[in-house]
């Protein structure tokens, strides 16, 4: 028994890696379809956008790169689906330097296929990437055309009907930053705190705990924390909009709800690791004390 405990405590990391691989890969191949429960920060984000009226403008900023796309993509897609369904207009930007614009283009292409009636320049615009995120945000408080003179295709934004109604960021109902790293936090400190436009954040799960401090301080409307937050949003969307319920049930593309199966299994496995590790640790401590 003692030998087993020692062995367990000194377990080769590669066994753990193998178990993690199997735990994540199996539910992707064989989906389980586990239920998702919703939390307050996601509900408040959802209800805020749900309460907008047709013609209102939502600013969606792609502030993440390909590395965290599986976690962040479903958030951006879900919020945009909600906006387009409610005829809320969308302004898209990308402030993360490595690959954010490519991701924004891909998501827009996907949404265009889902909502064939969308008109560029009227229902949505893509302002593209701009370097120097914090300086860009400060500039948005003065005038958007100063920060983004043209859209992603080089067209002057004065030619886009949607942008004529949004001279500065104050005219936007809410900013949704789907973020990794610090750019999401800058939307709060540079825009929410100094200009006043409400902000919803969709951070990666690892960054989410930090944003509860801002949520409690009333500087955030809501948080979509990691893949769980995205799955909750998808559930809320499906329950409120029957046309999307069908979509989320039948789509073959990756959704956060599907990803939650893998996340549930891996959480269970890690909890078992922690439990086993602690049992072995206590056993060895008792043995040391006995000696």
């Amino acid at each position: 028994m003692a030998g087993f405990v020692e062995k367990l405590l000194g377990l080769d990391r590669r066994w753990i890696f193998l178990l993690v691989l199997l735990s994540v890969a199996t539910p992707i191949v064989f989906p389980i379809g586990l239920p998702v429960t919703t939390s307050g920060p996601t509900r408040s984000a959802f209800e805020y956008i749900e309460a907008l009226t047709p013609g209102d403008v939502v600013w969606i900023s792609f502030d993440y790169g390909p590395s965290s796309a599986p976690e962040n993509d479903p958030m951006a897609e879900a919020v945009m689906r909600q906006c387009f369904l409610k005829k809320v207009r969308v302004v898209v930007t990308a402030l993360y330097p490595l690959g954010a614009l490519g991701i924004a283009n891909n998501v827009l292409a996907k949404l265009n296929a889902e909502f064939p009636g969308l008109r560029y320049g009227e229902d949505y615009v893509n302002l593209g990437y701009k370097d120097g995120a914090a300086a860009v945000m400060r500039r948005l408080g003065e005038d958007i055309s100063g920060a983004f003179p043209t859209d992603a295709n080089g067209r002057p934004i004065g030619e886009l009907p949607l942008m004529r109604d949004v001279p500065d960021i104050r005219h936007v109902k809410v900013i949704v930053t789907v973020a990794t790293g610090t750019i999401g936090e800058w939307w709060i400190t540079q825009v929410r705190a100094q200009i006043g436009t409400p902000v919803i954040i969709g951070p990666t799960a690892v960054s989410a705990p930090k944003y509860y401090a801002y949520l409690n301080a009333g500087q955030l409307v809501g948080i979509l924390g990691g893949m769980k937050g995205a799955a909750e949003y998808e559930k809320l969307l499906a329950s409120r909009h029957p046309e999307l319920a069908g979509f989320y049930r039948t789509t073959h593309t990756f959704t956060a709800t599907k990803g939650m199966d893998g996340q549930t299994v891996i959480h269970t496995v890690i909890l078992v690791f922690i439990l086993v590790g602690n049992l072995a640790y206590m056993k060895s401590r008792m043995k040391r004390r006995g000696a």
Partner: peptide
């Protein structure tokens, strides 16, 4: 120069 919602009660002409 603009048509805005009345509830905004303010408009900044940055042109």
């Amino acid at each position: 120069i603009a048509t805005v919602e009345p509830g905004a009660q303010r408009y900044v002409d940055s042109s």
